[in-house]
């Protein structure tokens, strides 16, 4: 039965055997099956969201690499300054690019037929579509009336990082820590640490990374990043 259940959930049980299998399920087993199928769909959606976020990252890297011919002189100067900065800061700026990717949104899914016009729905929709400038505007507007909303505060912080406004991002992540406990404390510490790296404040970054040492989701990354700093 265990093996058949696994095959059924994974879609490996032949279609013609479905009704026989379903007919044998007790009421409790049917509920268990519904639960696991939901978990399966949830995992598939989460993995897909991670893939989509990765694809958006590829696009951002392209944009950051694109230089027009007339900009070459300027680029050379920037490169010189960047090299000096890199040497002065022990190469840690590259770490930001290595470790940063926008946090996937599982907070709000806008379903067809639902109120897509709601401000918060527009904010998350723009975020999902990697339109971070628009998302930042919508989150800011929403937070004016809902300043205690922790998830929006957190995602607003990430959109500010996308806009390279790292000080403002840190201010928003701080507000997320201050509302501890909540689901975004560890994520906010991680993104704040990356923001501090970007502005060259390693002491604050290390302090935050230390606090993440026992985090299930960020612990390993935090230890690795700290060693590289």
């Amino acid at each position: 039965m265990e093996d058949s259940s696994e095959k059924y959930i994974q879609g490996k049980l032949p279609e013609k055997e479905h009704s026989t299998f379903e007919g044998k399920l007790s009421e409790e087993e049917s509920k268990e099956m519904a639960f696991e199928l939901g978990v399966k769909s949830g995992v598939e959606l989460a993995v897909k969201a991670e893939l989509k976020s990765k694809v958006a990252q590829f696009e951002r890297r392209r944009s950051s690499r694109k230089i027009a011919p007339w900009q070459l002189g300027v680029a050379a100067s920037i490169l010189l300054i960047a090299t000096l900065t890199f040497l002065l800061k022990n190469g840690s700026q590259g770490l930001y690019e290595e470790y940063y990717s926008p946090y996937p949104n599982f907070e709000v899914t806008v379903l067809r037929g639902e109120d897509e016009g709601a401000l918060i729905a527009q904010a998350y929709k723009a975020y999902d579509e990697a339109k971070y400038g628009l998302a930042a505007e919508k989150f800011a507007e929403f937070l004016e009336q809902n300043s205690e909303n922790v998830p929006s505060r957190f995602f607003y912080g990430v959109t500010l990082m996308e806009a390279r406004e790292f000080d403002a991002a840190i201010t928003n992540f701080n507000l997320v820590f201050e509302s501890d406990p909540n689901d975004y404390v560890d994520a906010a510490r991680w993104y704040a640490a990356l923001s501090f790296i970007k502005i060259g404040d390693h002491t604050s970054a290390i302090s935050l990374l230390d606090q993440l040492e026992n985090s299930d989701d960020f612990g390993e990354r935090a230890k690795k990043l700290k060693q590289q700093l």
Partner: peptide
Amino acid sequence: YRFLAEKELNDIYTSAIEKTAGMFSLLGE
């Protein structure tokens, strides 16, 4: 999976999707 058409089972299914997608990144490696 046609048996999910039953309301109670569909509710469990939908709720499990939401919870899983929402907490997946926080589940631990």
